[in-house]
């Protein structure tokens, strides 16, 4: 069933991918591999999941930390995402009728809006925002919720709340 006859095409594609890999940063490769680990987890391929996580952790260890102390640059990047790049990606994905990409963009844009709002609130009130409450992140779409009990279903991706996980204070 596995076709090998298009060897030359694969070789040229391979070359492109070598180039691609050089362009991917450690941060990107780490997330790409943790994504594939989750894909293995869903198929109950435990060993494969661990191997992808091992590669993901390797790349994560290569990410250079910044000495940035403020969330301000995150808000600026979010502003740029929300005013430009989501819109552009939506147009391209609509033109190509890529509904999978459009789905990811709908979720990502909603989560980004919420993150921007949460960062705004944190900039104003600081730790007071979280002092007497909890913070949760949806495992599926990244939705962030500040409050004692998360919603029964995620408002962004509609997954049940057992996949909305509390981020503990350590």
């Amino acid at each position: 069933m596995i076709k090998h006859e298009k060897g030359t095409i694969e070789d040229s594609e391979m070359k492109e991918h070598f180039d691609d890999l050089r362009e991917l940063t450690a941060g990107e490769l780490s997330a790409l591999c943790s994504n594939l680990a989750k894909g293995c987890e869903k198929q109950y391929l435990k060993e494969e999941m661990q191997l992808f996580n091992q590669i993901s952790d390797y790349y994560k260890s290569k990410i250079e930390l910044t000495d940035e102390e403020s969330f301000e640059p995150v808000s600026e990047l979010l502003h740029n995402d929300l005013t430009q790049d989501f819109a552009k990606a939506n147009i391209v994905s609509s033109e190509k009728e890529d509904r999978g990409a459009l789905r990811a963009l709908v979720w990502g844009e909603k989560v980004s809006r919420m993150l921007k709002s949460v960062l705004g609130r944190y900039a104003k009130s600081g730790n007071e925002l979280l002092e007497n409450t909890k913070i949760y992140v949806c495992d599926i779409c990244g939705f962030v919720y500040i409050g004692d009990i998360p919603p029964a279903i995620c408002p962004v991706c509609k997954v049940p709340s057992f996949k909305i996980t509390e981020v503990g204070r350590r």
């Binding site: 990107e28 997330a31 990502g108 989560v111 949460v118 992140v137």
Partner: peptide
Amino acid sequence: QFATAISKSNRIMIEDLFR
């Protein structure tokens, strides 16, 4: 705790975009 939540949220969005 707050920074960890922001980091985790971003990681999940990146993974989804790669998908």
